[in-house]
Design a binder for these strands. Structure first.
Length: 428
RNA sequence: GGAGAGGUGCCAGAGUGGCUGAAUGGCCCGGUUUCGAAAACCGGUUAGUGCGCAAGUGCUACGGGGGUUCGAAUCCCCCCCUCUCCGCCA
C-alpha cells in the first residue's frame, strides 16, 4: 500500500505507475482514494470538535444539580445522535478509502522498462555458455519417464492435470537441490525457517497477493485459510504488527516450503513436463530491511547474486532480466527474473524472481522498526527465489544429459549422492 | 470436538461505569550526587492522526469488530489469539 501522502502529493505518479503496469482498471482507484481522503479530512476536524464537546460535557455531569442535569442530558443526547450518524459515515469512508488505497499498485521505479508482458523484459546480463550437443538432446520428461523417475499419468489419475510424481534419483535430486539452496543461504547468514503453508487472508493481503490473486490461490473455505503460493507470504508476515529495533535489521530469512498455485487461466500453456505444476517446493530468501532506498537496492542485488551463485555452482547457463512494467505485480517496485537455459524450450525459462517493494508490503502488514532516534517507520521488504523445484530440475536434467539418457551431476550436488557422478541407466 | 481461565504500554502487572492514556515496578533516556562508577534520588519515556514555525494542543486507540450508556479498559454480542483439563489423533 502506498502512503496516502504520496497520492496527495504526486497523484499523477501513482496513476502513471498503474498505467506502466498495464493495470488500467486500477488507475481510477487513485482518484477514488483521493476523493474519499478529501471528504474524510473535511469531516474529521468537525467530528473531533463535537467529540471534544461531548467528552467535556460528560465530565461535568457528575457535579451538576439534578435540575441542571436534566436539561444537560437532553443536550448531550442530541449531540450523541448527531455524532452517531457522522461516525457511521466516517467508518464507511475509512473502509472505502482502505479498499481503494489497497488497489493502487506500487509505483514502479524509473529503471523498470516499459512493456506489456514478459516478451518485453530487458536482458541485463547473460552468464554461462549454452551447450552445443553432439546428439539430439531430449526434453526432461522423455528422459525422466524413460528412467522411471517421472510419472505424470498416475499423478493425473490421482490429482488431476499439472501434477507429477518423482521417483528414485530424481526424487533425490529434487531434495538435494533444495538442501543445497538452504545450506548456501544459511552459510551467508540467513536464518532458516520452516513456515506455515496455510495462512489467513491478512497475510495474503499484507503481502499484496489479495486483492487480485484470489483466483491463483487454493483456499480452504471451511477454515478461512489459504495455501501459500510462496513462503514470501508467511515469512514477510512474520513480524506483522511489530515494531522492530533498528539493530535487529536487516532480518534475513531463508524458508523452505511447499507452494501451491491453481494456475487458473493457463490452460494449454506449458502443459508438458515439470514446468508449470500446481504444487512444488521452494527455497525463498526474504529480507526485512531498514527504510533506505540505497540499502534496499544493495540487498536486492545481493539476493540476486545468491541465486546466481547457485546456478553457477550447478553449471547452468542463465540470464538476468529486468522485468517490464506490464509483467510486474501490483506490489512490486522493481523485479529481476533469472531465466535458466532449457534446451527443450530452446529458450531461457523463468526459474527465479527477485522483487523489491520498499515499504509497500510493510505498510499493509503494519511492519515497522524504531530508528535510533525518532518515530517508528515502515520497513522495506525484499525477496527472491533460491531454488524452486521441480522446475529447476528441467535445466539440470536437460543441460547435463548424456546421449544414453543418463545425467551427469554437477560437482556441487555429488555429495548428496554419496559421491556419484552420474544418475540413471543407459536407456537410449 | 467438550469444559474452563485469560488477552491492558517495550516488559511485568493493577484497574470492574466518570477523577484512567491508564497505578506500581522494571527496562531505556536525561539530570543530581561522585575523583570516576555503582547505588540512591529527581525528571522523562505508547502509537496513529489533525492544527501549529514551534512550544503546544484536539481527536482516536486497553486483542479485533459491533452494541448499551450523557459517559466504557470496565457492561452486552460476534470474531481472533493464548493457557489449563477431558476426548481424539499424525
Amino acid at each position: 500500500m502506498l502512503d496516502i501522502k504520496v497520492l496527495r502529493e504526486r497523484p499523477e505518479a501513482a496513476k502513471a505507475g498503474a498505467v506502466k503496469k498495464h493495470m488500467p482498471d486500477r488507475v481510477e482507484a487513485v482518484d477514488k482514494a483521493l476523493a474519499l481522503d478529501a471528504e474524510l479530512r473535511e469531516m474529521t476536524p468537525k467530528l473531533d470538535a463535537m467529540r471534544s464537546e461531548q467528552k467535556a460535557g460528560g465530565k461535568q455531569i457528575g457535579k451538576m444539580s439534578p435540575e441542571e442535569r436534566e436539561a444537560f442530558l437532553q443536550k448531550q443526547k442530541q449531540l450523541k445522535a448527531q455524532l452517531q450518524g457522522l461516525e457511521e459515515q466516517e467508518r464507511q469512508l475509512r473502509s472505502q478509502l482502505l479498499e481503494q488505497l489497497s488497489l493502487v499498485p506500487n509505483i514502479p521505479d524509473d529503471e523498470v522498462p516499459a512493456g506489456k508482458d514478459d516478451a518485453e523484459n530487458e536482458e541485463v546480463r547473460r552468464v554461462g555458455e549454452v551447450r552445443e550437443f553432439a546428439f539430439e538432446p531430449r526434453p526432461h520428461y522423455e528422459i525422466g519417464e524413460a528412467q522411471g523417475w517421472l510419472d505424470f499419468s498416475r499423478a493425473a489419475e490421482m490429482s488431476g492435470s499439472r501434477n507429477y510424481i518423482l521417483f528414485g534419483d530424481l526424487a533425490l535430486l529434487h531434495d538435494a537441490v533444495l538442501r543445497y539452496a538452504v545450506e548456501l543461504l544459511v552459510d551467508r547468514g540467513f536464518t532458516p525457517v520452516d513456515p506455515p503453508v496455510l495462512v489467513r487472508d491478512a497475510a495474503m493481503f499484507g503481502t499484496g497477493f489479495f486483492p487480485g490473486g484470489e483466483e491463483q490461490t487454493y483456499r480452504c473455505e471451511k477454515d478461512g485459510l489459504n495455501l501459500i503460493g510462496t513462503s514470501e507470504v508467511p515469512v514477510t508476515s512474520l513480524h506483522s504488527g511489530e515494531i522492530l529495533g533498528e539493530k535487529d535489521l536487516p532480518k534475513k530469512y531463508v524458508a523452505r516450503s511447499a507452494c501451491f498455485r491453481r494456475e487458473a487461466g493457463t490452460y494449454g500453456k506449458d502443459t508438458r513436463g515439470l514446468y508449470r505444476v500446481h504444487q512444488f517446493q521452494k527455497v525463498e530468501q526474504v529480507i526485512v530491511d531498514v527504510a533506505d532506498k540505497a540499502t534496499s537496492l544493495d540487498h536486492h542485488h545481493s539476493i540476486v547474486q545468491n541465486a546466481e551463485d547457485m546456478l553457477q555452482a550447478f553449471g547452468l547457463p542463465y540470464r538476468v532480466v529486468n522485468v517490464c512494467g506490464g509483467d510486474l505485480g501490483a506490489p512490486q517496485a522493481m523485479k529481476y527474473d533469472i531465466e535458466t537455459w532449457m534446451p527443450s524450450r530452446q529458450s531461457y525459462g523463468e526459474t527465479h524472481s527477485a522483487s523489491r517493494f520498499y515499504d509497500y508490503q510493510a505498510r499493509r502488514l503494519n511492519l515497522r522498526y524504531r530508528p535510533e532516534k525518532g518515530k517508528p517507520i515502515f520497513c522495506h521488504t525484499l525477496n527472491n527465489t533460491v531454488a524452486a523445484s521441480p522446475r529447476i530440475l528441467i535445466p539440470l536434467i536437460e543441460n547435463h544429459q548424456n546421449a544414453d539418457g543418463t545425467v551427469t551431476l554437477p560437482e556441487a550436488l555429488r555429495r548428496f549422492f554419496g559421491g556419484r557422478e552420474v544418475i540413471g541407466k543407459p536407456v537410449f
